[in-house]
Design a protein around this nucleic acid. Structure first.
Lengths: 336, 336
DNA sequence: CCCTTTTGAATAATCGTTAACCCTGAAACA
DNA sequence: TGTTTCAGGGTTAACGATTATTCAAAAGGG
């Protein structure tokens, strides 16, 4: 039903190629013809059929964005940044979330490849032992950039935050604030969480503290696991006077538990989160957190990908680690 | 580089069509041929080229999702629901946000049409006087569903919440809780905000209260405008003892202002939000709010759209209003 | 006036699949 | 024996663009 180049060409008694050239501003076309084509195109309300163009140019101007879940503010923010960064280049983003399910992730990657996306941005949940999907991506020579979660043993571009530094910054801050029994609500069994904990450990050691295993509680990445983790910590004696939480939601859950226990925040227990998620400054006790430059992750990943798509010869993988920044708020504002 | 049906056909000395038929489970093919094709396809790691298929079938199995901004939890949630609902049907979603800019919205819609999406889901920011974009969509006969924000004068399918009921529910709840000076922090100058306010007004009138114009403050939809709006309200005498806020972020901002003023929540001022956004139950004073069935909006819109795409003959537009539900939490839990 | 350039546009050949028809040989039926 | 029927496939022509090549006419040059 919508007009095609053929319609324009027929009406004007020129060839389709001529129309195509005018519309792309390419090739030698007389001013007269150009104007007639343009006019007729406007009259017919012509819109390029991108599917047809993609078939021959092998470019869809579409990139796939694969996220564990995009209701999570962190990933939502990244999605926004990616979309805004690529739009000026004429790209669109096909988004998909796989709910932390590696198999679903793999099948979605294949699906996006079949749709001929020009590139992929992935916050992957694949175990380092299951990298077949990525082999398939590489065979196709579809550029891709990993974000947030690096994968050991995969030579791929990556944009993320320095998780080790997050743990270090948070812990050093708590030490500077005079805490001497610093606990850690760590995240799930993935690399990022391990790195943050390692940063915490190093900072503790450097500060002259001995790490108590009672002070480290494992959990997930939601506020409920933060809440439960904190309840567990509240049973430990002596009570910790500072907690570094895996991320902001966990910290928010932890703060709830602390309040419910009748303890004062930050006087009795100081809390540091990570992520600088929206609303973390609007809580009853605004949360001190480590900003991971969420927005920049999206922007940089997108720019990196676009650059790779643009260049013919494959550039060598590039790793970008964004240095985190401490954002001090009330949850650690105690007499130092 | 990736294998095509031709590669398989050549290797097996059959025609491309035969391969195509096998891969689609269509037509009469002997069991032997079928198996050989399937085997070779697997060997070559064959993946359908959806662009090519789309060109001839005129189906991309892609829908466009247009949102004002998807870092907002409300829209992020909808996006998730939409994506999950359409995935089982083989659809993918191309997402785009237009930052509340009607012109950008229009150009994105055109852009998505050019990409031959099978359908559109839009939370539009178009003024009722600028509906040319939608005329273009209708001309193409691309099915679309409006969400969240209805547009007067547009015969289109719509899924949203009953905003009038939201205002009513919230206000009646405050009245039931014994508030007698109920203020309203209203949203921006759009229809939804007006409807919520109308619900508030009606409920007030029905409860026998006279609406004071001082008690209604206009604002935006972010927490900062809630904060400032509330500061304005705090200067009014007599002080309100209950506030119905346009949405949860506004309510969160308002609660911050109330706390800063040294007032007790909910004893001095009770607060009701709307949206039941994540984290609204994890605040220092968990927020009483009106649940708009965010997830259901996404699911229903997606199902409606898929149904429209599936049916040849255009079904008549369908409007779905989801009844909101009160979620009572601490921010209004006072002696009734 | 003939030859070379330049200009402007047409032709032909894809791109990877699918839709609509057509063909062939063997079994079934009369 | 002649006619159907049907299984199992092949042929041809799109789909709506782009790229590469070719070509005719006008323009320039000696």
């Amino acid at each position: 039903m919508p007009a095609t180049m053929q319609d324009i060409a027929r009406d004007l008694k020129v060839s389709v190629v001529t129309v195509s050239k005018v519309l792309r501003n390419q090739g030698r076309i007389s001013d007269d013809t150009r104007k007639r084509v343009l006019r007729r195109a406007k009259e017919l309300n012509y819109q390029m059929n991108w599917v047809a163009r993609s078939l021959v140019t092998r470019r869809t101007y579409t990139i796939g964005l694969l996220l564990p879940e995009f209701a999570h503010p962190f990933f939502a923010e990244i999605a926004r940044a990616v979309a805004q960064t690529i739009r000026p280049h004429g790209y669109h983003v096909v988004i998909s979330s796989f709910e932390e399910d590696p198999e679903l992730e793999a099948s979605e990657i294949d699906s996006l490849l079949a749709r001929q996306v020009d590139g992929l941005i992935i916050a992957s949940s694949q175990a380092p032992s299951h990298l077949n999907v990525f082999k398939r991506v590489q065979e196709r020579k579809t550029p891709y950039v990993l974000i947030d979660r690096p994968i050991a043993g995969l030579r791929a571009s990556f944009v993320g935050v320095d998780n080790h530094a997050i743990g270090r910054l948070a812990t050093e801050h708590l030490i500077a604030k005079g805490c001497c029994r610093i606990a850690h609500l760590r995240g799930p069994e993935v690399r990022i969480a391990a790195e943050r904990m390692e940063g915490y450990r190093r900072a503790l050691a450097k500060g002259g503290f001995r790490p108590e295993s009672d002070y480290i509680v494992s959990g997930g990445h939601g506020d409920s696991s933060g809440y439960e983790g904190m309840r567990q910590l509240l049973a430990v004696r002596p009570l910790p006077d500072g907690v570094f939480c895996y991320n902001d939601p966990v910290a928010i859950g932890a703060m709830k538990a602390i309040r419910e226990a009748g303890l004062k925040l930050p006087q009795d227990i100081a809390v540091v989160g990570a992520g600088n998620v929206r609303y973390s400054d609007v809580l009853s006790v605004p949360l001190t957190t480590i900003d991971q430059g969420t927005c920049r992750i999206g922007v940089l990943a997108a720019e990196l990908l676009i650059a790779r798509i643009g260049s013919k010869c494959p550039i060598r993988p590039q790793q970008i680690l964004i240095p985190p920044k401490l954002v001090e708020r009330e949850s650690t504002r105690r007499l130092a």
